[in-house]
Design a protein around this nucleic acid. Sequence first.
DNA 1: GGGAAGATGTTCT
DNA 2: GAACATCTTCCCT
Length: 194
Amino acid sequence: MEYKKNILDRGFYSRDTSKVARDLLGKVLVKKSGRTAASGIIVETEAYYGPGDPASHAFRGSTPRSSIMFGKAGIAYVYLCYGVYWLLNIVTGEEGVPGAVLIRGLKPLDGIEEMQKRRNISCGRHKLTDGPGKLTIAMDIGYSDNGKDVADPKSDIYILENNPPDESFIIKNTERIGITNGKDRLLRYIAIGL
DNA sequence: GGGAAGATGTTCT
DNA sequence: GAACATCTTCCCT
């Protein structure tokens, strides 16, 4: 695979957060761990802003945890949710303006066996990467990936343009999930038909 | 197949 | 000390 040719550059992430969230659907997330590489098609995202978005970590300004959202676009923001699960975000927008896209769902491509081992699935009742906490387990993403540059081909985590481009899926725009504030804006994006 | 609630620990007030 | 961008299990229909 010609990974480096298709990697999304920083310009892609430096745009408006909701546009980045929508355009990330159908793209391919790649995570290398050791000798193996896992990848999956992004099928669900959410956009998070700063001021004016009560659900965002950056709502109250820059804190030790959220300061990364004010930084350079294309940086991975990984944080612990509910003390249990790691969630993967990509910083978006111009430098100094807080914003990030939460990767909520993947469709596994490569390394599926590795994912199953890491998820330790006992029954086939649940899918592999259909939630933000599950996909980080399956992709072996954790706090050590926080602050990595997703737009850098030398990183072991990055996102590719899908090849060949497939724009056949439908994009659905809904309320965000699992939050109590800021539900009025439709900032969750789901790809249907992948 | 779908809804409800407990587990869990870091961060901020 | 309260809040929280979730997952799993259990129980119901």
